[in-house]
């Protein structure tokens, strides 16, 4: 497996959408996600030149963002809301999306909107692992390093997250006897 290693031209801007998506699944709030991503770059930029050539820059950025998020949670511990231990209620924070302006965009948007809505209904730890694996394609050992947990935990959490997500997207859950894909909910 090859990783995006550091070179002198790397700025980290190529990870912006991925980092913003990660911040969105952690916070479920655009303003907080934006602040978190900005904080990530504020921390990362002065340290970029100190990275070794073999450094895994992408994983490093994601780790900085996660640490910044955990620090925010610690500071808020006395506050009324701690999203990290939330359940499945995605209703408290509405997430506005821009409207599409072509039919093709609408079709694709509809599916994308459903995927985002389904993911945001998952518990935080499931949202996080789906983002890291299915969207960012981080290998298991790297996710384990990022989350500070064993690879076995990554595997089991990912399997449960995928099963729950499949239910939310009305794709049938693979069972021993039936495994056909029903896709109506996405069309």
């Amino acid at each position: 497996m090859s990783y995006p290693h550091y070179d002198s031209e790397t700025t980290g801007i190529e990870y912006l959408d991925g980092l913003y998506s990660y911040a969105m699944v952690l916070t479920r709030n655009h303003a907080e996600a934006e602040d978190l991503v900005q904080e990530t770059y504020v921390r990362a930029m002065p340290a970029m030149k100190r990275l070794r050539p073999e450094s895994n820059v992408k994983g490093w950025f994601f780790k900085i963002l996660r640490n910044a998020w955990l620090n925010q949670l610690r500071k808020r511990r006395t506050g009324p809301e701690i999203s990290w231990i939330d359940g499945e209620d995605g209703s408290a924070r509405e997430i506005a999306e821009p409207s599409p302006d072509s039919y093709a965009a609408l079709v694709s948007k509809t599916e994308g909107e459903q995927v985002r809505a389904a993911i945001q209904k998952l518990p935080a730890k499931f949202r996080e692992i789906i983002l890291l694996r299915e969207f960012e394609e981080l290998p298991y050992h790297e996710i384990a390093g990022l989350l500070d947990c064993p690879v076995g935990t990554v595997m089991s959490r990912l399997a449960r997250a995928r099963a729950k997500l499949r239910e939310l997207l009305t794709l049938t859950k693979p069972e021993s006897s039936v495994g056909k894909v029903r896709n109506e909910g996405l069309r």
Partner: peptide, 27 residues
Amino acid sequence: ETLEAEKELSRVLRRSRPLYSAPASLR
């Protein structure tokens, strides 16, 4: 069938990349 169902879920998710786009102002 399980493999196909899992592949379909991955396809659906990956068609939705990026999950969110960062605001232009932030970029």
